[in-house]
Every structure is written in structure tokens, then in C-alpha cells.
Design a protein around this nucleic acid. Sequence first.
DNA 1: CACAAGATGAGTTTCTCT
DNA 2: AGAGAAACTCATCTTGTG
Length: 512
Amino acid sequence: MSIFSGEGNTDTILETLLTYSALEKSAPVQQDADSDDFSSDCEGNFLDDFTDIDSSSDTEEIINPGSDEESKLLYLTKMGYSEAEASVAMERCGPDSSIAELTDFICAAQMAKAADALFPVEDRKPFCNGSNYNKRRNLSYDLWKRKKQMKLEKKLLNEDDDALHLPNPMIGFGVPTEPDLITQRTLPEAAVGPPYFYYENVALAPKGVWSTISRFLYDVEPEFVDSKFFCAAARKRGYVHNLPIENRFPLLPFPPRTIHEAFPLTRKWWPSWDPRTKLNCIQTCTASARLTERIRKALEAYDGEPPLNVQKYVLDECRKWNLVWVGRNKVAPLEADEVEMLLGFPKNHTRGGGMSRTDRYKSLGNSFQVDTVAYHLSVLKDMFPGGINLLSLFSGIGGAEVALHRLGIPLKNVVSVEISEVNRNIVRGWWEQTSQRGTLIDIADVQELNGDRLEQLMSRFGGFDLVVGGSPCNNLAGSNRHHRDGLEGKESSLFFDYCRILDLVRCMQRNQ
DNA sequence: CACAAGATGAGTTTCTCT
DNA sequence: AGAGAAACTCATCTTGTG
């Protein structure tokens, strides 16, 4: 079994990583904080380190004892990498590879297999070779053994990263409506700004994804928050940021927090057997007219309450498609402007500008919940009374910009990177409509934002105060039947561009 | 071509019931 | 506790229509 599972995107990721590590600073993936630049001084340390390692303990195969290869192997294992990882890396990178190249390779490999890191043992197929009696006799034993092994691994895994378990209730360090509030945390030293950064993605990503994200973002513990504590719709998201968490304040007025408050007219038609008070997560697709018609017909056949099986069918569909009651036996999907309101955007924010109805739902479904994000960003208001310079990656329809604006934090200079032209139009339109006095620069492709371009922008603005980004979730989201490939997926791997750019900004800002 | 509708589960967490 | 059921999820691909 190869560490690279053959998905074509790993090359690109590797490339990104290599440019990223070429910055000659401590890579955030690096586990040992004490070795800042191991590529230059590791050579001298080889033999010293070599002596105090018990080389016979866990080596399965000895390759040329005393050779350069083995020294590297030991060095890597001492750095905390497994022996398997180290030897694969050496095999792939060749005998003359430096330690830096090897660690780069390993971290790319770890990343590439993050999704299936759950059960790293090779496929056990207890009866792969035909059908003899003995094998059949062993079947139940094998199954039992396998089950036991799985249980054990699960247990180990759980104990291993229980720091990344989703909190229940999902309130992160706190939300305005709940009493439990954490106001103190200690950030890893490497994470302390400037600039401040704020990264977002779906909370329910495949296993291992969030620990990878956290590892790449200076080991900052993600804050998992469900936006149902801020509005009438659920939205479970993880946020990794280095902002202070004391003295946060919410946007006012509070948005409606139940379906009935948000849509008072639905109350009249809401059947008693539909217990929902919150909507589910707003997604990118919406129910068709024909589905609502099917539901109407299913209900029409009954005078009073429909039988339980019909209730269940209707409720399941309502939950799946976020339908609300708009008439007798009539359900309907949310209108786009209603979604805008739920997510905290101004009405008609996504209207016009070349947006089709489908586009509108898609852009909204991919966006921030403004009140949630604003609550986290609110701490910036007192710190930057004169306004901030913002670097906004994967801006979408400008959730971060809207949040800061609604908080009353002036936007001095905003560099916004967004691939979709209609989305850029939306943000541009909003920018002009709200009479912003700062400068908005939009860039289509993150790849365009290389060191030179950043240097040019930063010298013009004097650096960035905040780097915001919610990288694509396509390959992480549960709704994706086809390519839920994890962080190495085609779109979701852009996360590593967020890291690359954030790192560049931090590095340049520090050296100015 | 643009747009809309319909078909397409799995992976995880959370709830429920012994 | 723990096994099984239920609930939930920032989606993609193909087809139809104008």
C-alpha cells in the first residue's frame, strides 16, 4: 500500500508545500519547537543524536548499518515520525535528499492520507484465497479478532485526539445566549499575531481533517460553533483563529432565533406534529416545486392529522430540504432573500449582478453566518478604532467584510480573493452601495497571490491586520456523494494556499 | 447555452432504548 | 454502558426544457 493513494492532486499539494517551506522559517507542521532550522544544523547533530537512540528497539529491518541512510532514518524517527513514514520518504526522495526534503515529503504524505488515517493497518482479508475448510473454520475467529482490533484502534484514536472532539452543545468558547463562557486561553507561541487570522470550514469533516488543519495553523485549537445559537438555522462550523476571546459582543439587533420569529406568517399553517423550532443547515441546493407538490398531494388525502407514516415522510423531506409551511398542506423552500436574512446579510445582497436563482442559492449556501463571525471578530473594534487592512481569501459574497462593516469597524484596505466572477460583482456592488471610503482590490485566483504580489500590496498598505478565509468545503462536506476526498481533494486542498499566504504575510510583516 | 429539476448515499454524530 | 436507530450534512452529475 502506497502512502499516496494515487489521487492526482497530491503533486500540486506537494508543490504548494515546497514553496511554503522554502520560506526558510519553522514550518507549522513541525512538531519540535526547539529546532528552528534543522536543514542547516542537522548534519552536525546526526552522530550525536545517533548515539543516544536505542536503535535496536523497534527497527524491523536494518539497512546498511552506519550508513548515511540510517542516520537520516534515526533522525527522522527521533523527530517523531514513524519509521514507516521515514523509510517511504527516503525511498521516494532518493539517497541524496536532505532532511528538509524528507520532512516535506512526510508531511505531504501525512496530509494526503489524512482522510484514511483512521485505520492505517493494511487491508486484512481473512479469506481471499479460495474456499478451503480451515479458512472457513477461522472465519468467526478472524471476524472477532478484527472487531476487537477495530475497537482498540478506535479507542486509541479517541484518546489520542479527544481535544478535537466536537463540543456538545457546540458553543465554542461561548455564545451570547448561553451561560458557559471561556474567556481565557493560551495560544501556542507560534500562533500569536500580528496579523490576526481567522479560518473557517465545516465542522463535520472526515476524521483527521481538523487535526491536520489545526496542525498547519500553528496548533491552534479550533473553535466549533453552531450558528443555531445566533440565528434560526443550524450551521456547524469550525474556526481556527488567534483572536482574543475576551469581551466579545454580538451584533444588534439580535436576529430571530426560531423559525416562528423569523417567519411569523408560517405559524398559522404549522402543524402540531412538526416539532421543528430551528432550521437545518442552509445548503447550496434547494427543493423543487414538484417536491412540494408531492407533499401537498400526500397530505390532501386526509382531513385531520395524517397517519404517522405520512407524517414521517413529510417531516423527513422538510428536514432534508429545510421546508417551511406557507399554506394549508403547503410547504415551500426558503426564498433567497429569506436565506440572506438568516445568514445576516442585507436583503437583496445577492440579487442581480448576473446572479441566477441557482447561483444565488449556491453562493449563499457557501457563505459565513454573519452574526457568528461578527461575534468572534468583535474584539477587533476597540483594538483598531481607525480601521483595519483586511486580506480576505475565498471571500465568496463577502461574509467577513459584511460582518466587520456591521460591527462598525472601518475597512481601510481590503484585498479580496475570489474565483467566481459573480461573487466578486456582489462584493464590489456592496462595497459601492455602502459608500466605503477604503480601497477594494479583488483578485480572481489565489495562485496569483505570490510573494511578489503580496510584497507589493503590503508595502502599499503597510501590512494586513487580519487574514480571513473559509477555504472550499466541497471535498469535506457530508452532502458530497462523489468527491468527499478530504483535504487533498481538488478544491479543499486550497486550504494549503491559505496557509501559504498566511505564512508569507506573517513572515514579511515580521521582517519589516 | 443557461437554467432548473431529479437522481445519487456515505460517513459521523447524536439520540434512544434496553 | 453499548448496541442499534435516527438524524444530519457550505454537493455533484445527468437530464430535460426553452
